[in-house]
Amino acid sequence: MISGMPRWVARVLWVSMISSMAQAAERPWTLSSLLQTLRHTTSHKVRFTETNHIAGLKRPLHLRGALRYTPPSTLVMAQSVPHKAVYRIVGDRLYVNHATRGVSVSRYPGLVAIVSGFEGLLSGNQALLTHDFAVTLSGDAGAWRLVLHPRLAELRRAVTTVTVTGRGGQLVEITTHAPRGDFSVMHILP
């Protein structure tokens, strides 16, 4: 479970990053220009569907929900299908459902790395982002693809790659691969 936490956070972070990224679509398509736009991130809400392919299960699991990012550091993920649950990260605390006592994100090494990567993104700090991830951006503003490889061994244990694709200002899909063949595909609904 511990190693599971970072995965969805990564996605949450990327969704919010990419959504805001879309606003800056007309600039030259480089990583620094992407990050530049993140400084202007405002409150944002999207809906998503997701499919988890787990090696130990006979069939994939489908889930659905919404996520909201509020600057500077609040992420709320509300899952509605197959069951209801709310995950909230405020600063470095993680709250599940209505828990008033949060768990320190620091308990989850992978999570820590992603949160720090996320903060690097939001602050537009390319150095910090590339410190945590090897970033490859391909395609153009019309159809692009961003692949992230975690640099930290702790993070690599939970996530091997995160691939984000988009079309112009439209975020399309986030695919996350974990070790041992598990992977998930998240579609962002327009």
Partner: peptide, 22 residues
């Protein structure tokens, strides 16, 4: 365990199958 696997935290939770009783 299934509920966790069917959550945004589910992907990395493969290890749960090695320890379903928590």
């Amino acid at each position: 365990a299934l509920a966790v696997l069917a959550s945004p935290a589910g992907l990395g939770a493969g290890r749960m199958l090695a320890d379903p009783t928590g």
